[in-house]
Amino acid sequence: MKAAEFGYLRPGRMEEALQALAAGEGAAMPLAGGQSLMPMMNFRVAMPETLVDLAALAELRGIHDAGERVVIGAMTRWSELMASGLIAAEVPLLARALPEIAHPAIRNRGTIGGSVALADPAAEVPAVLLALAGVVVLRSLAGERRVAAGDFFLGHYETARAADELIVALEVPKARGLRHGFHEIGRRHGDFALAGAALAVAVEGARVMEARIALFGVADRALRATGAEAALRGAVLGDGTALDRAVAALAEIDFAGDIHASAPMRRHLAGVALRRAWAEGVA
């Protein structure tokens, strides 16, 4: 189980990295934390011609307070996010999700940009970005563009990132006044989710003004449960029937089955995750 041959570049400047990706014409892959890419290369499932190691690009690191938003460099590692007071204070939903990601040694290397780029349907952070209406910042030789998380995750390991683009940062609006809930159902500690829910809910008085509900581990990608969101909009907190309607509305989702859980099982667990996330952070 050894990786096939590849070329390796560690550019010191962003320009070089973008040139390398453009020159690779799809056969060059960015190497971020490597915690998913390396296993795929060891299995020879991924066989890039060239790896463009982003480690030397200092501008991709770090967490910045940008007023209404928090900007997270794509190469920021999970462990750095977990240690960040800014994340804990301003992006509590992300802070809540981080300990659920894999194991310490993986979190010491794995990066948020790498996870978003891979778009594993069972990964936590794509759902968190959906619930928080985050933005993916992409750059190529042609310039920079900002893609809403809702437009970024397109399908099974498929995103809006072009092969010559790098994710340079994630932008997340500060959580001002939102309630958050998160629940993940996995077989073992650190396993990918059988189902999970990330919620960001605006409440005024006892009334739900807006609920953003993102599910992960249940379909081909992390996705918003729009029917459930509609069912909860305007509901009074503590009104169990609204939550029941929201869970029933999950039926609209195209649930995916695999060896770990069938589609009907995932449909059921998505409802459980939604209820538990709601109970944890909203109700």
Partner: peptide, 13 residues
């Protein structure tokens, strides 16, 4: 100073 998986890091890294 931090734990990593030796199999998920290239030597050149």
């Amino acid at each position: 100073g931090v734990t990593v998986r030796g199999c998920l890091m290239l030597a050149v890294q």
